[in-house]
Design a protein around this nucleic acid. Structure first.
Length: 427
RNA sequence: GGAGAGGUGGUCGAGUGGUCGAAGGCACCGGUCUCGAAAACCGGAGCGGGUUCACGCCCGCCGAGGGUUCGAAUCCCUCCCUCUCCGCCA
């Protein structure tokens, strides 16, 4: 959420910056609503003040044993006028809020303008895609070869876009998760969390999925407004909702391994084959809660924390700076890491690292108190995948495959695989 | 799931429907005292919003949302949460 004060004082400039990411702010409507709001709020508060004063006077008169009938007569229509004014104010306020809560974050000045992923800017590449002297299989074929990865079974159990992993592939999946968690906690200073996989609507509002992107979420039956988490970013970031931290507690570095559930309502028809785009996938997530002055250092740092995983696994990747049109609504700046997939002969997203600045903090009322400062100020929040485990699994499978369909386990991962070096056909 | 008791400021804890944003204790900050500290004493302190050049003034907030009333922390309704006992379960 943007600062409502900024929307009042610098509307034209805000609109211009939003236009850069393709968001058309209705400036005239905002001006009209704001003028109306101001008028109604002033009047409502005046009426409230009058009510308070008169009620107090009635109480005092009664205390002195005086006749309060005349005083009551004086306030007879006050309630109605107040009700009329305040309900109209609530109406205007609701319209204003509906717009404000739907406005995306302002892009950082270093973010290139652009429409979609075509306009993203590659920052650098790491590793060299391997040359194969045989025809590469994609992970779906590799998994099917020995029955370690079964999409048809998952379809029978549930429906489309789910996977069943078994034996060594299931084991590899677990190893990846453990490996990533251990790296983030032991080497990068994150605290490990185990969080609910179901959250309420307040949490989803806080991180910005609601109210606008509810279609991408799985909502639970019942009247509790419960949703399956689309990412651990939601529970982890909301840990600081409604909190006022002390400056010396910062930065907070949190990580968690969770499943993520996405209905991907807008993405049907894309990546229908394999486990690139699933309704359920596991991810190790990193979240940082930092002092506003340090959030861009933290962004670079987190990018490094995610890259370190890919480097350790010896997976070729490239780093991409997202353009304004490809960023999520909460992000001011986002890097994507894209891993090399031989079967697609291209790089595919495996991690996304964003600085939300105070966008989420404002929605969550997440603040901190600067040493010696009276007023609390908003924190900055960042999140990044470190990494998406399903996609990492398929990247390992495809990049490390051999002619017979066996898969070499990356060196760094072997301690988490009981020393298994190659995934072969079952005995 | 059944029965009961509760949700008040950083914390503990008062609060007959009327000057209550709310006593008091603790913790906290500033000051006096002290070589320094402790103790004692004095004082200050919540969050959000509106308005003002500013001092300030005003509004809202006692789990959440409704309602009754001139007036609600206090009365009524719905929901959420916590605790105790029983049952069930991992």
């Amino acid at each position: 959420m943007l600062d409502p004060k900024l929307l009042r004082s610098d509307l034209a400039n805000v609109a211009a910056r939003l236009a850069r990411r393709g968001y058309a702010l209705d400036v005239d409507r905002m001006k009209t609503l704001e003028a109306r709001r101001r008028e109604l709020q002033t009047r409502t508060e005046e009426l409230q003040a009058e009510r308070n004063a008169r009620s107090k006077a009635i109480g005092q008169a009664k205390g002195r044993g005086e006749d309060i009938e005349p005083l009551l007569a004086e306030v007879s229509d006050l309630g109605e006028r107040l009700e009329a004014s305040s309900s109209e104010l609530a109406e205007i306020q609701a319209q204003f809020d509906a717009i404000v809560t739907g406005i995306p974050n302002l892009p950082h000045e270093s973010v290139p303008s652009g429409q979609d992923e075509e306009d993203n800017v590659e920052q650098h590449r790491w590793g060299t895609p391997r040359e194969f002297d045989f025809t590469v299989r994609d992970h779906t074929d590799l998994g099917a070869l020995y029955g370690y990865l079964d999409f048809e079974l998952a379809t029978r159990l549930t429906g489309s876009r789910f996977a069943v992993m078994r034996g060594p592939i299931a084991r590899l999946h677990r190893a990846l998760a453990q490996f990533m968690l251990d790296m983030q906690t032991r080497q990068h200073g994150y605290e490990e969390f185990q969080v609910p996989y179901i959250v309420n609507d307040d949490s989803l509002f806080g991180t910005g999925q609601l109210p606008k992107f509810g279609d991408d979420l799985f909502r639970l039956e019942g009247d509790q407004n419960y949703y399956l988490i689309p990412t651990a970013e939601v529970p982890l970031t909301n840990i600081v909702r409604d909190a006022i931290l002390k400056a010396d507690q910062l930065p907070l570095r949190m990580t968690a391994h969770t499943p993520c559930f996405r209905s991907e309502a807008g993405a049907y028809g894309r990546d229908t084959r394999g486990m690139i785009r699933q309704h359920q996938f596991d991810k190790v997530e990193m979240v940082q809660v930092v002092h506003p002055e340090h959030s861009y250092e933290a962004l670079e740092e987190m990018r490094g924390h995610a890259e370190a995983i890919l480097q350790a696994l010896e997976l070729p990747y490239r780093t991409v700076l997202l353009c304004t049109g490809d960023m999520g609504a909460a992000a001011a700046k986002t890097y994507d890491l894209e891993v090399w997939l031989p079967s697609q002969n291209s790089y595919r997203e495996i991690s996304s690292i964003s600085n939300a600045e105070d966008f989420q903090a404002r929605r969550m009322h997440a603040r901190f108190r600067e040493q010696g400062q009276k007023k609390p100020s908003l924190l900055h929040t960042l999140n990044g995948s470190g990494l998406a485990i399903g996609r990492c699994l398929l990247a390992v499978m495809e990049n490390n495959q051999q002619a017979d369909g066996s898969i070499v386990i990356p060196e760094a991962l072997r301690p988490w695989m009981d020393g298994i070096e190659v995934i072969n056909a079952p005995d």
